[in-house]
Nucleic acid binder design. Structure first.
Length: 506
DNA sequence: ATAGGGTTAG
């Protein structure tokens, strides 16, 4: 840095500029400086406006969206630089629709302004978030025309874009062509494989990077993706290895990485290890607490989930549960049959925590009450809490499941009929309803539904599963008896059922 | 005068 005195004398706008910098990303102070800009007639100076919108766009306040939108659409006569800023701010901020980003790109294009690498990185991000594959491909070709396809930032953005649109094959091709591969580029392709269900490839690529001297070192973002891959593969051994790797490299888990570890261990059914990680975390946020609670919930440890939930709300811990936390605790109660606790939590959710119950919470409650056999109360709950006619398909699906479980086929038929009304074009519901008619002994109606389904040309996708053993693939469809070892397979299945039933009655 | 790419819960 040069000595400050060597700089040119302050520009007329420099005071405003510094006022903006001082305001930082806080919306109110920015608005005050903005007002001063309008009064002094400099609010149309592009450099000042650009700085203003960059700062406002970086704000993390939840109520900043409206102001940012106002700024975006009052930009004075944008040049290339300002257009890039408009595109980036609207693609970054989740409070602004990233469709705006694409809109600004089109406007820039129609005004004949030359795009730069900044333009492409920003607008490709918006395309990725929108899964706008066609537009993104078009942008790719425009990047080639503008000779920006060799720019490593643009290439990284392309890798991320194709991954998000589900085309990891193309993402990989772009990645392989990169001359300089930053850690961000590696992370984009590793997470791309993982997000598209190709966990094996993602792990393989990580180890390839890890053994190359010329490749960058893994950072916490790499490990977050890798831990998700472990959950997908059920490879807690690899998860253990990552934990050792972290301590060897001195990577202290932050809230994000810590939460990923917790999720990995819970999903691999090592709840105790998950708890150990949780207890040792230096940084915990709502997400970490929620992950641990849901880890207990998914393994039926309702009591532990409750204890943790209360601990989270106890004095001295200033972490407040959000709507996801309530889904986690309510479903933990549901799986463990803690009906009284669940009812109490639902009541306190609105009263004490100011979290407005959404459809997902209602589903948890209906599921919980229904599983426990309180079918009438579940129906009452729907009537009382959900405006008539607006219960979603998830609510009725939970209700149907509960009715089947407790063999109340009359109520089950009613619930399934409601489900049909809500989603008349879902072929699965026709099958469900006709099964229930059959169970309820309403044979005439079975025919009617089946016929209706045929008339409307609806077909349910047949469920199937696959497994590969010694490089031979085996496919199983619903009711399929074509496998050469069908008899043995079904005998094995019967044994499993017996074991499961005796485990439940224990 | 002003700026960039990846990673967070059910």
């Amino acid at each position: 840095m040069e000595d400050g005195t060597k700089f040119a004398p302050p520009l007329p706008h420099s005071q405003i500029y510094h006022a903006l910098v001082r305001a930082g990303t806080r919306i109110r102070p920015l608005q005050q400086v903005h007002a001063r800009m309008v009064v002094s007639g400099v609010h149309c100076i592009r450099s000042l406006f650009t700085k203003l919108i960059t700062l406002a766009g970086a704000s993390t306040a939840s109520n900043s969206g409206h102001y940012i939108r106002c700024l975006l659409h009052s930009a004075p006569n944008p040049d290339g630089f300002l257009f890039n800023t408009l595109i980036r701010v609207s693609s970054k901020s989740d409070r602004v629709s990233s469709a705006d980003s694409i809109f600004f790109y089109r406007q820039m294009w129609s005004e004949g302004i030359q795009p730069s690498s900044y333009t492409f990185t920003a607008v490709l991000k918006a395309c990725g978030d929108h899964s706008a594959l066609r537009l993104g491909r078009l942008l790719h070709s425009q990047a080639v025309v503008n000779e920006l396809d060799e720019d490593c930032y643009v290439q990284t953005a392309l890798v991320a874009f194709y991954s998000k649109c589900g085309d990891v094959g193309i993402a990989r091709m772009v990645f392989d062509r990169m001359r300089e591969k930053s850690i961000v580029a590696w992370n984009s392709i590793i997470s791309g494989y993982e997000q598209n269900g190709l966990a094996d490839e993602s792990v393989e690529l990580f180890f390839e990077m890890n053994k190359m001297d010329s490749a960058p070192k893994a950072d916490s973002a790499t490990l977050v993706s890798l831990l998700s891959a472990c959950s997908q593969l059920g490879r807690s051994d690899l998860g253990d290895w990552i934990r050792d790797y972290m301590s060897a490299k001195g990577i202290e888990p932050d809230a994000i990485l810590g939460t990923s570890l917790i999720n990995m261990y819970s999903r691999c059914s090592h709840v105790r290890k998950a708890r150990e990680v949780f207890d040792n975390l230096k940084q915990r946020n709502v997400i970490s607490w929620t992950a641990m609670i849901s880890g207990y919930g998914m393994h039926g440890h309702g009591d532990e989930a409750m204890t943790l939930f209360h601990e989270m709300n106890s004095e001295g811990i200033r972490i407040r549960p959000n709507h996801v936390t309530f889904v986690a605790i309510l479903s933990a109660c549901g799986h463990a049959g803690l009906v009284n606790e669940g009812r109490r939590i639902f009541a306190s959710m609105k009263q004490d925590h100011k979290v407005i119950p959404k459809m997902e919470h209602h589903v948890c409650m209906v599921d919980m009450l229904g599983r426990a056999g309180f079918l009438d109360e579940a129906i009452e709950f729907i009537k009382e809490h959900i405006p008539a006619g607006s219960a979603g398909p998830e609510v009725w699906t939970a209700m149907v499941g509960a009715c089947k479980l407790h063999k109340n086929f009359k109520l089950g038929v009613e619930a399934a009929e409601r489900l049909m009304c809500v989603e008349p074009n879902n072929p699965g519901h026709y099958v469900l309803l006709s099964n229930l008619y059959a169970l309820a002994g309403m044979t005439d109606d079975v025919e009617t539904v089946r016929n209706k389904m045929v008339r409307r040309r609806l077909k349910k996708q047949v469920g199937y599963s696959m497994i590969e053993i010694d490089e031979v693939g085996h496919v199983f469809r619903m009711g399929d008896r074509s496998h050469s070892q069908t008899r043995e397979l079904y005998r094995c299945l019967d044994e499993l059922m017996l074991k499961t039933c005796s485990a439940v009655s224990d």
